[in-house]
Computed example of a mutant assay.
Amino acid sequence: MTTRLEHVNIAVTDPKATATLLADLFDWHIRWEGAAMGDGYAVHVGTDSAYLALYRPGGKTLGTVARHSVEGGLNHIGVVVADLDAAERRVIDAGFVPHEHADYEPGRRFYFDGPDGVEYEVVSYA
């Protein structure tokens, strides 16, 4: 059996704005957007084979939870890029602060806190 990860669905306050930012940072495209369950709204952004589903629930206020402290909670989203330095320049130009830089076998990485407190790990294996 061949298995691959297709998407991850996360709740955000502004799916359109977050999707536009991620498309710009990572050369992704918006695959779909529209009404979603519970009178919500969703935007799917990514590549032809995988994407993030960015979901805003209808009529609900989103709360925050500290990363790395909740069972089943989202710690970060990892994105692989060909050119880590170019990706970091885009992140900085978008107004975000890279942190936790590391060289490790087999690649290099950094993290940044994006919209809604979602942490992204950007890694290159080049």
Rank of each mutant, 00 (worst) to 15 (best):
F26D: 09
E71Y: 10
L5N: 06
A17P: 00
Y51K: 14
P98R: 02
V65G: 06
E33R: 00
G63R: 12
G107H: 02
I30L: 08
R109P: 01
H99D: 15
H68I: 04
E71Q: 14
G78P: 11
F112C: 11
D48E: 12
D14H: 14
V97A: 09
A11Y: 14
F112G: 06
A50H: 12
Y111L: 08
S49N: 15
D103H: 01
V81I: 10
V70N: 13
G58D: 05
E88D: 04
A102D: 09
G78T: 07
V118G: 03
T64K: 14
G117W: 00
F112W: 01
W32V: 05
G117Q: 06
E88G: 03
M37I: 09
V81H: 06
P115M: 11
G63V: 04
L84S: 01
E105R: 15
P15C: 10
A53P: 00
D113C: 00
E105S: 15
V97F: 00
V80F: 07
E6I: 13
H68L: 13
A36L: 06
R89A: 02
A86I: 04
Y125Q: 04
M1A: 11
P115T: 03
G114K: 04
D83L: 12
S69M: 06
D48C: 05
I10K: 13
G95M: 00
G73A: 07
A42S: 15
V123I: 13
V97H: 03
H99K: 08
D83E: 05
R4S: 14
L5E: 10
H29W: 06
K16W: 04
K60S: 10
S49F: 13
L74Y: 05
R89P: 06
W28P: 10
F110I: 09
D14K: 15
R4D: 11
L84F: 01
A11V: 11
Y120W: 13
R67A: 15
V91L: 05
R4A: 12
S49K: 13
G34N: 08
I30T: 14
M37L: 13
L22T: 07
A11R: 15
D103G: 12
V79F: 08
G59T: 05
Y120S: 00
V79A: 06
G117P: 01
R4H: 10
Y111S: 07
D83R: 05
A87Y: 01
A35S: 11
S69H: 10
L54C: 08
V122P: 02
A42W: 04
A35V: 02
T3R: 10
V65E: 13
I92P: 00
A35N: 07
L54P: 11
T3K: 01
W28K: 04
R56F: 06
L25C: 06
V97T: 15
V65F: 14
A66W: 07
V122C: 09
G117A: 03
T2H: 14
S69E: 12
L5I: 15
W28S: 08
T18V: 14
S49W: 07
T18E: 05
G38A: 12
P106K: 04
T13L: 11
A102P: 03
G78Q: 07
L22I: 03
D103Y: 00
L21H: 02
L84Q: 02
L54K: 04
E33Y: 00
A35T: 02
G73W: 07
R67L: 10
Y120E: 07
L22K: 07
W32L: 08
K60I: 06
N75M: 05
R67E: 15
D116P: 00
